[in-house]
Design a protein around this nucleic acid. Structure first.
Lengths: 337, 337
DNA sequence: CTGAAAGCGCTAACAG
DNA sequence: CTGTTAGCGCTTTCAG
């Protein structure tokens, strides 16, 4: 690999002149610039990013840290982040925390060790000292999906309260009164927000939410399956279910099918987030979807802003909250009788 | 961030002694070692990987290059690669070529520029000079999924001929004689192998493959949908379909449903690869699945071998070919009548 | 406008 | 066993 020295030798200038010239052509004589660019071309020179990183104390890497790669929107998310990052000459690293605080800690240490320019994180683990750790991080940070209130940084996500409110309203308008909610992992920000939206919408229609119908599905298909089994075998079973994510909705659907109930005739089902192959799932689910690509792009732009920020005052934390999009499927119908 | 110099100062030794001691404790006096480790602990020292990379001419990064992040097994693949890499103190970068040769070229240039230790690639684009480019790459390379015969490096994947042979045999045993094949993108290695396995199995049973029933689905759900529409509206329509991947199978299933055919009563469907939510797709698909995690792990181990290889002679190209696993669903039945 | 020199943090001979 | 020295490739003052 050609180095700056080779270029300097061939152009008969010093290496610093090459460095300067290649950065800003207007700083040298047109003639020198020409010799330098020609020489660079000739030897096929391109600066060594590792050396640049060492000098700058920062690499052109963006770390993406997520809880699980099984998440249905993971592919879309990464594709959009990578696309935007590539346009700005950044490479993207990917790590999975498996929602293990120790692992998340180790990953972030590895990332800051590599002097990544910034980190996009879906912070599933807002536990005490871990939060402290995140807050004191020097590396620019953008949170997606899960917001951590105490964290003084950018956030990009959707209005989660609105998301469940939309679904719940839809079911109410169809005539449902006993609606169950399979909530996400207890303690997570999104779970709380989604449950809040569910409860508030019922209350606004004069319905007191029944705690027995609000179950913890832990954002897991299997757990949701089990919980749905419990819900459907109750004497006063619900006529509709709002799931807090698509994995759980699929688990619920499986339980519905296994018990030989019919969706939507016996029970309606609505959820947040689609799955890539939504069109062949029967019945097609009624969903609100997150604009993943937009979220990813906004998060990456926020991060790049911070990375390139040169001013003296720090950038104030910003937020971008998208409104999810309602897509009617065939999984919701008026209740029987 | 503490540097090696801080440790040296505190332990009252030279920086090279610190470097040596931390690498191999047996090279220094126990007493010095103790002072050094204590000092390192005290200042919270950990070596700067960027500096190490500059010195070594190689970073502890592994680049993963794939065609599309929409691939159903993408998440499993990345999870396993990342897991294995992390155990060996490597970070993983991720890039998507979108099967664009220029983009693949740019990505690999960026990766080698960053002096990644090695690259795991699913090389969708074996075009002439591009192949030349890959072949002359200094960076260790491991190919997964798509094998490029001319490429002198490791390969990990499945026996693709066997995969379609298994499915085809299954359908033949059920009594099918007119079986269609929705093939993958023409020109790709996997597509060819899979079609070959399909044809060979028919021939072995004395059935001459009908070229009209072998269509190009371009590994795309939409294209497969269209092709299935054509197949099913033929007067001599097939009684069964073997799809070369799950995306296309889902497209085919959609077409079957839209035409109000019933799967498996009117038409059987079998495919390679499952989808993460296979259990809620009706009917459950009969599939052969690739052991993605094993493939990913084997590929990463091959790559790490090459990265850590110190010998004078180069490692000979190795191959690991897995046998896919047959999983019976409900999408195959004997033909009608 | 150009060049010399220092240094980012680390490793690896090579002396002592 | 330990320290000195010389870079890895680049950027950035600071003189000339």
């Amino acid at each position: 690999m050609a180095t700056i020295r080779d270029v300097a030798k061939m152009a008969k200038v010093s290496i610093s002149t090459v460095s300067v010239a290649l950065r800003d052509g207007s700083q040298v004589t047109p003639e020198t610039l020409r010799r330098i660019t020609e020489a660079a071309e000739a030897v096929g020179y391109s600066p060594n990013p590792v050396a640049q990183s060492l000098k700058a104390g920062r690499s052109r890497l963006i770390g993406v840290v997520i809880g699980s790669m099984q998440n249905p929107w993971f592919g879309d998310l990464m594709a959009a982040i990578e696309e935007t990052a590539l346009e700005h000459h950044h490479l993207v690293t990917l790590s999975e925390t498996k929602t293990d605080p120790l692992r998340e800690r180790a990953i972030i240490d590895a990332l800051t060790g590599q002097r990544v320019g910034g980190i996009i994180i879906s912070p599933h683990l807002p536990a005490g000292d871990h939060l402290q750790f995140l807050a004191t991080l020097k590396t620019p940070l953008v949170a997606i999906d899960h917001k951590i209130e105490a964290l003084n940084t950018d956030f990009v996500g959707i209005d989660n309260e609105l998301a469940t409110a939309m679904l719940t309203q839809h079911l109410l308008r169809l005539g449902h009164r006993r609606i169950a909610h399979i909530a996400g992992t207890a303690g997570l920000w999104t779970s709380g927000q989604r449950e809040k939206g569910f409860r508030a919408t019922l209350l606004a229609s004069g319905i007191e939410p029944d705690d027995a119908l609000i179950v913890d599905g832990q954002y897991s298909g299997d757990v949701a399956y089990d919980q749905t089994m419990r819900l459907l075998t109750r004497p006063d079973r619900p006529t509709a279910i709002v799931a807090a994510n698509s994995l759980m909705a699929l688990g619920a659907l499986q339980a519905i099918n296994d018990l030989r109930f019919n969706c939507p005739d016996d029970i309606s089902l609505a959820t947040i987030d689609s799955v890539p192959w939504a069109s062949v799932i029967c019945p097609q689910l009624t969903v609100v979807v997150q604009p993943i690509a937009e979220i990813a792009q906004a998060a990456t732009m926020f991060l790049l802003d911070r990375i390139h920020h040169r001013g003296s005052e720090p950038i104030k934390p910003r937020e971008k909250i998208f409104v999810p999009k309602f897509i009617a499927g065939r999984s919701c119908a008026p209740p029987r009788g």
